[in-house]
Amino acid sequence: MEQSHVLSVFVNNCVGVLTRISGLFARRGYNIKSLTVGETENPAVSRMTIECIGDAQIITQIKSQLRKVVDVISVEELKEDAVCRELFLVKVRANDTNRTAVMGVAEIYRARTLDVTPETLVFEICGDRSKLESFFDMMKTYGIVEIARTGVTAMDRG
C-alpha cells in the first residue's frame, strides 16, 4: 500500500551531496514529497529529512539505494508517532473590511502575524501537517497571494 514515510538520512556535509541524493530519487523514479537539509550538532554531518511516498517494497529499495551512496552515513525510517514539524509563510489577502476576521482565524491556529499592509497579511505558522493544511484551507477562503513552505523536519520521540 502506498503511503508517506519519513526518512532521516545522515550525510557527509560536503559539496554535491544534495545533488547525489536528489539525483538518486529522480533517476530511479522515487516520489519525494519534501526534502530538508541542515547541519547537525556535528558540522561535518548534515541531516536530511526526506518525506517520500511508496509501498513497503519501494521504501525498502529507497533505503538500500541511499545506504549505497558513499556520502551517506546512516538511514533511519522514523516511526509513525515521530515528531514532525513544518513551517509555512502565508501571504493572505486582507483589507479593512475583513482583517480582523482573518487575524481571528489565525489566532485560533496560533499563527504569528509578521507583516501587515493595506491589502495583505503575512502569517508564520508551525506545526504538523494536518494543522498546517487545515490553516491553509481556511486561508484559501480569504484568498492566498503566495505561500512558502519549509518542508517537513522530524525526529523520533524518546
Binding site: 559539496v15 554535491g16 545533488t19 547525489r20 539525483g23 533517476r27 551512496v69 558513499v70 556520502d71
Partner: peptide, 14 residues
C-alpha cells in the same frame, strides 16, 4: 565532469 558522471560512477570527487 563531476556533475556529468555522478549517475554513472560509484562515487566521484573533485
Amino acid at each position: 565532469i563531476y556533475g556529468v558522471t555522478m549517475p554513472i560512477t560509484k562515487h566521484n570527487f573533485i
